[in-house]
């Protein structure tokens, strides 16, 4: 691209990327206001680096990386109100996920450590590959795999085995 991207280009990015970034933020944070703030923050940080952008099409991925890094920073604050002890898992699985999936899923995600939650959301909601997730989080592919494994174990403990069974294999499959 010959010229640096303009403010109009950035506005286009905001309109195009906002819905998916917001949904990712919501799944990471579980709160609408926090998700909106996180998405705004991530896009504002992206704008602060806008002069260095050479390919606006790649800026969407950059904004998502900023969003995840910012969320991880928020999680690290001790005052983060969603912080829950990940060791405290219920002895019995939560009720089966039904029509009103959102609270059950968000409660389960909230029990994951921040990086595990980010790995789950990026891989299984944003459909990123292991390599893409590693790049977005700035960690190794091995860490993505190990964090995914731990996260799925925790989700299985909270939501029940049947929750993670493929639909064509039945609930009895191990």
């Amino acid at each position: 691209m010959a010229r640096p991207p303009s403010d109009e280009d950035f506005a286009d990015l905001v309109h195009a990327a906002w819905p998916s970034l917001y949904r990712t933020a919501y799944l990471l944070l579980g709160d609408a206001a926090e998700a909106e703030d996180l998405t705004q923050t991530a896009l504002a940080k992206t704008y602060a680096s806008w002069g260095r952008v050479r390919e606006p099409a790649a800026a969407r991925g950059y904004a998502r990386t900023v969003l995840v890094n910012t969320a991880t920073s928020w999680f690290r604050r001790r005052s983060w109100h969603n912080e829950l002890p990940t060791e405290t898992l219920p002895e019995r699985p939560a009720p089966e996920v039904g029509n009103d999936d959102r609270p059950v899923l968000l409660a389960a995600l909230a029990r994951l450590a921040p990086r595990q939650r980010a790995v789950v959301v990026l891989r299984f909601y944003d459909d990123l590959s292991v390599a893409e997730t590693a790049r977005a989080l700035g960690i190794t592919e091995g860490t993505v795999k190990s964090q995914t494994s731990v996260a799925l174990d925790r989700l299985r403990a909270v939501l029940g085995d049947s929750f993670l069974q493929p639909s064509d294999q039945g609930a009895s499959h191990d």
């Binding site: 906002w18 917001y22 799944l27 609408a32 999936d101 968000l106 789950v120 989700l155 929750f163 993670l164």
Partner: peptide, 22 residues
């Protein structure tokens, strides 16, 4: 193995009403 999780996340995500982009 993770197909149900992917489906559930997408279903929850798609049901979310994103506010207008500010």
């Amino acid at each position: 193995m993770t197909e149900p999780l992917t489906r559930l996340l997408h279903r929850v995500g798609e049901d979310l009403d994103a506010p207008p982009p500010p």
